[in-house]
Each structure stands twice: as C-alpha cells, then as structure tokens.
Design a protein around this nucleic acid. Structure first.
Lengths: 191, 191
DNA sequence: GTCTATAACGGGATAGAC
DNA sequence: GTCTATCCCGTTATAGAC
C-alpha cells in the first residue's frame, strides 16, 4: 500500500472513530506512519483528505448494500437479509455519524457524499419494496418509500442506542421489532 | 438569569449544535456574555459544565416524553402522539448526538445521563406497549421491548436522515412508515 | 517525494489583581 | 465574583532543505 493509500485508510478509520472535528492531520500522519510534509505533498489539507476518505467509505457502503438488494429471494427476504447482516454495531455507521459534524455538513463538498449515500439507500430499498408489493408479497397499504425510510432509520437509530448502552442489545431489539411489525404485512407471492 | 445559569444554557445550546469536542470554553463564555475568570469560578472546567448541561437536557427530555406517555388514551394513541410530537428535526436529538462524541462516551460521568435517558425512554415505551397488549389493544405476537427499541431507533435514525438530506421529509417518512407497520397490529380494546 | 523547521492561531486552564 | 495576564500545548498549515 503506497503513501497516499495509507493516508486515506487512516483518515477513514479516524473519521469513523472520532469524527471530522475530532480528527487532526497529525493523528492521521501518525496512524499512517507518514511524515508531515509527505501528507501535504499528496493532499491539499484536511478537507481534501477527508473528501477522499468519505467518498471511498460511501462507495464501499453502497457496494455492500447492493449485494443484499440484488440477491435472489423475495423482496422481504432481501430487506431482512440487509437488516440482519453482520455489522460493527458499536462503532456505528461511518457515514451516518458524519451527519453530526457541523464542519462536514457545512461544507457542500464533504456533505454531498453523505447526503447521496443515505438518499440512495432509501431509494434502493423503496425499489425493492415496491417490487415486492407488485408481486403480491407485501401488503399494498404500505408506502414503499415510507417503509424504506423506516428501515434505514431503524439501523441508524439502532447504532445510537447501542453506543449509548455500550451493548448491541438495543440494536438487535430494534431490528427484531421492525421485523416483527413487518411480518403481519407479508403474504404469499402470486407465483 | 444569573451567571451560572447563563453558562449552563449556552453550553446546552452549543453541545446541541456542535457537540462536545466542537465546543470550546471560549465559545461558551462569549455566548453567555461571561468572562473567562467568571466561568472558572462557577465551574471546574469544560467537563464539569458539560455535565451540568447534559443533566439538565436529559431531565427536560424525560419530562417532555413522560407528558405524552402518561396522557389519557390507548397505548397506541400515546405512542403515536409521542412519535408525531412537534420536534426540531433538523437540529436532531441533543442527547442522541452525544453518542457520537468519543470524549463524552469515554467519560463515565458524562456518559451516564446519555445512557440512562435512552434506556429510560425504551423502558417507558415498553411499559406503555405492554399495557396496551394486556388491554387487548395490541397484537400479542409483538414484543413490547423490541417495538419500544424500534420506536426510539426510528426517531434517532430519522434525525440522521433529515440532517443528511437537510430536509424533514425523510424523518416524516420514517415516522409514517413505522405507524403504517404498526397499524396492522392494532385491535379494538376489550372494554 | 519526504524531512525538519517555523509560525499563527485556538483550546483549556491557572494566577493573581481588583 | 469578575477581570486581565499568562502559559503550555495541539491544530493546521507553509517553507525550504535534502
């Protein structure tokens, strides 16, 4: 892994652990094992590095989610698989957490990938749910967009509860709860 | 409002807007219109002031929530009223956001009120839902604790989505979604 | 490309005068 | 109780040597 690469990876980790405001260029350099001058040779500064890091994290997140969304199975199966996927719950969502950082949300360039990733997630989930509804797998009274927002919110909020409790339990309960609520709306698909 | 009071209020605002790491003693003093020495006379330092601020915010949050939980009406009515209560959505939850601050979560004293408040919220909601289940208002297949966690998570996650989008729409959708999912589980209470 | 100064600035707090 | 001065350190770079 070359220097620029190591810098981006260190930045990704630190943004996840400590957020943008809590992450200093010095900390990035130390974790990457890269000198001061070297960092400023490859990147214009902290915002530039953060942008590269956030973009990569966003891309990775979409790719991982799309794996579940485009898998075989019914719509509900795929949404369920996405909800039950293994996650680093206590670390939270590396994209969602940036939402709390005023310096990120105040910079249009840094904000864009955060906004787009979460919007894409909701859209994509809504598509999957709409597909399930068309196929008769899902109660037609449900609004796919609303349920999609709920699903993403349960995950994001589940992270918050888990971090507060320093336990995965409330996260798991929140997931179990929404799956339980969803169950009554599932029907056998017309084959 | 006296000096100590103004300091606490300013701290509460800044913690909400910028988080713990993003809030400096100087910023607190300026917003409160209080001098350096004055602040250190009334409080031992930043953590001490933050503790007072967080405790007050936590107390306020519980009091507001309890208003809805102990109101008249069915269990589902009260949970619905809580979910639909007017909120400063784009500012997010002043307690939930602290969850993302490693300096807060790393300090047991600062962390405690965050943990306790969110735990209390889930417990209290679970009690209301359990009551509704006993009265036959709610499908018995639902686990009150799980649904309670889901409800709190939808709110916390809804804030995240709203802040990312800089719009209340995804928040409102997430709430609408969970209410829609809940609807199928409601039955007429045995009177 | 990477290194070591250097620097302007803010964070977080202490000291002592008033 | 409040004010000003002072302090040390970390942040976020820039400059120029190697």
């Amino acid at each position: 892994m070359d220097t620029a690469e190591r810098l981006v990876e260190s930045t990704r980790e630190l943004l996840w652990e400590r957020g943008y405001t809590g992450t200093s260029p010095k900390a990035i350099q130390q974790r990457a094992g890269v000198g001061q001058g070297s960092m400023y040779h490859h990147f214009a500064g902290k915002p530039d590095l953060a942008l590269a890091a956030i973009r990569r994290t966003a891309e990775e997140m979409r790719a991982l989610a799309e794996e579940e969304f485009s898998a075989p199975g019914t719509a509900v199966d795929r949404v369920t698989a996405y909800l039950l996927r293994e996650r680093d719950v206590l670390k939270g969502c590396p994209i969602g957490r940036l939402t709390q950082d005023p310096d990120v949300m105040g910079d249009p360039a840094l904000r864009a990938p955060v906004d787009e990733t979460l919007a894409w997630l909701r859209e994509r989930l809504a598509e999957v749910l709409a597909e399930g509804r068309e196929r008769g797998e899902l109660n037609t009274v449900l609004d796919p967009q609303a349920v999609a927002a709920t699903v993403v919110a349960v995950l994001q909020g589940g992270y918050v509860l888990a971090r507060a409790a320093d336990s995965v339990q409330p996260f798991d309960q929140a997931i179990a709860g929404v799956l339980g609520l969803l169950a009554a709306h599932i029907s056998m698909p017309r084959t």
